[in-house]
Every structure is written in C-alpha cells, then in structure tokens.
C-alpha cells in the first residue's frame, strides 16, 4: 500500500506540468466578463478535487505517437463538464457545502448556480469545438446525453426498493463510468492510439469508473463525515438506494425492516437505524468485492495496450483509487 502510494505520487509528479497546463486552461476558460461568474468558477476550481479525469486523459493521450495539445483541451473540457454537473447537483441536493466550502448555490442562490453550470458547460463544448475531430464530438455528445438520463433515473429511483441490481448498475454507468470511459477513450483517440487500443482504454475507463462509484457508495456508509464532506449514509438519507443497501435487502431478516425505515418522511433516528443495519449486514464487504471484480476487469482490458508506461501508470492509478478512503 505504501509503495503504491509513492508510485501514485510519482505519476502525479510526472504529469504535473501537463496537469498545470490543464489547470491553466480551466482558469482561462472559467474567467468571465461578469464578476460573480468568475468568482463562482474560481470557487469551483479552488475546491479542486483529484483531477482524476484529466489525469486519465493525459496518461491515455501518450498511448500513440501523437504529441498533441488537443489532449490537454479534451482533459480540461471533461473536467469542466464535471464541474458543471457538480454545481447543478448541489441545487438538486440542496447542498450548502462541497469539500467543506460553501457551494455556489449557498453563496449566490439557485439561479446563479444554474447560470454558472450552463456557462461552464458551454465553455466545455466550445473547448471541444476547437479540436478538429468529429469523432470526439459524437462520443462526447452520446456520453453527455446518457449522463443526463442517469441523473434523471437516480431521482426516479429514490426510495425505490423494488429496483434490481441491473437498474443500479445502469444508473452508475451513466452517472459516473461514462465520463471516465470518455476521458480514457478520447485521450487515446486524440493521442493517436490504434483502434483496438482506443476501445480497450475506453473499456478500462468504464470498468474503473464502475469500481470508483461502487467504492464511493461504500465510503458513503463508512467514511467519516469530516473527511468525506457529507454526513455518513448521506445517500440513503436522501433516498438514494445504492449497492450496499440492495445487497443488504437480500437478507430476508433485514428486508422488511429496511423498507419500513427508509421512506420520504424518514426521521434521523430511522435513517441511523437503517444505516446501522446495512453496515452490520456484511453488505459493505460484498460491495467491495464487486468493486474488486470491476478493477480486475479494468486491468485485464489494459493487456491490449502496447505501451508499457501507460499500462503501469493506469494500473497504479486504478489500484490507488480502489484503496482510497475518501
């Protein structure tokens, strides 16, 4: 674990100049003629995050022979799209804080958050329009439509205990895995990867994204509120039934009680009891094994990639994400 952590840091160090290039693009494009929009954009940029999507795009962009600045543009556009969805998500979730900082909606109001998200999304597409490759647009557009469908389906399935695993997996595919798959696939495409490598890296990104979201859903039950930045069991409190809850539901002794406890008017006491039942059911370990299965599939997909450095860096990054605690 310690060695992997060092490796992970080494990858960040190696890509620091290119990540800084992406950061520079983000700063320039988020800057607006309107002071509050600039301030809202900077607030989102400063809240940071791991910049996982840009890093995946940059690594995959080294798979071929092309050394192209377009990879950095694509990486920035993907991150900007992600930022746009976050600022709108905070309105949907009525969130006051993100990573311990006030959200755009709590600083400026819901409408300002809507305009900020729409502004950032336009900037992201504009950035992509500078990349002369129609395949980039087709893939990105297809992915964004599905992401939006996934977000709508998430609300549709709130408090829905009759949803199956298939529904859950389709939802997280759309909500999370697609954007990571796009980061890898588009990075490889613009970086001049062979067709089979582009497809393999897209698959790699998809499986890694699935694992990433499953782990996120496990951490929602185990992470400390201070570190994760939201209350333990926040998803369940909101009515979002994730994999650990669905796995716990398979236990006939728990199913009836869970369904009684989790409903739109659930009290804090009921939520805490439901969370304790899920944590005590062994479902978190099972969910972690599902994430491990996705990680194994991701690493298998990497075998089609010929450049050793890309395989090694993506393997390290994926294993680090699988072991993360926040």
């Amino acid at each position: 674990m310690r060695d992997e952590h060092v490796d992970f840091q080494q990858i960040y160090e190696e890509y620091r100049p290119r990540l800084e290039q992406v950061e520079q693009i983000l700063k320039e494009r988020a800057r607006s003629n309107q002071a509050e929009l600039t301030s809202a954009g900077e607030q989102l940029l400063e809240a940071g995050g791991k910049r996982i999507r840009p890093l995946f795009a940059l690594i995959c962009g080294t798979v071929g022979e092309n050394v192209s600045d377009d990879v950095a543009k694509i990486a920035a556009a993907l991150e900007m799209t992600h930022m746009a969805t976050l600022v709108h998500d905070d309105v949907i979730d009525q969130a006051a804080l993100r990573r311990g900082r006030p959200t755009v909606r709590s600083a400026f109001g819901n409408l300002a958050a809507m305009y900020t998200g729409d502004y950032l999304f336009a900037r992201a597409i504009q950035l992509l329009a500078e990349v002369d490759n129609q395949e980039v647009h087709r893939a990105m557009a297809n992915g964004i439509v599905k992401m939006c469908q996934g977000e709508i389906e998430q609300i549709q399935d709130f408090y829905n205990w009759s949803q199956g695993f298939k529904t859950y997996f389709r939802r997280i595919q759309r909500k999370t895995a697609l954007l990571i798959a796009l980061s890898c696939g588009l990075g490889a495409l613009v970086g001049g990867g062979r067709n089979e490598e582009v497809h393999a890296l897209r698959r790699f990104g998809y499986y890694t994204g699935m694992a990433f979201q499953v782990i996120d859903d496990v951490l929602d039950f185990t992470g400390s509120a201070e570190v994760v930045g939201k209350p333990v069991g926040g998803d369940l409190r909101q009515g979002n039934i994730t994999l650990p809850a669905l796995l716990a539901l398979r236990n006939p002794g728990l199913a009836k009680r869970l369904q009684e406890l989790v409903h739109p008017a659930m009290s804090a006491r009921e939520a805490t009891e439901a969370i304790d039942l899920i944590v005590g059911s062994g479902a978190l370990g099972e969910a972690k094994r599902v994430a491990d299965w996705y990680i194994a599939k991701a690493l298998l997909a990497l075998q089609a990639v010929s450049r050793v450095s890309v395989r090694q860096q993506l393997t390290t990054l994926t294993l680090f994400l699988a072991d993360r605690t926040f």
Partner: peptide, 11 residues
C-alpha cells in the same frame, strides 16, 4: 435535469 437534458440533446 430537464434543462440539462435539453442542452445535451442540442449538443
């Protein structure tokens, strides 16, 4: 989400 969905379809 309705607005975001419309914009995604425009793109």
């Amino acid at each position: 989400l309705a607005g975001d969905y419309d914009s995604s379809k425009y793109y």
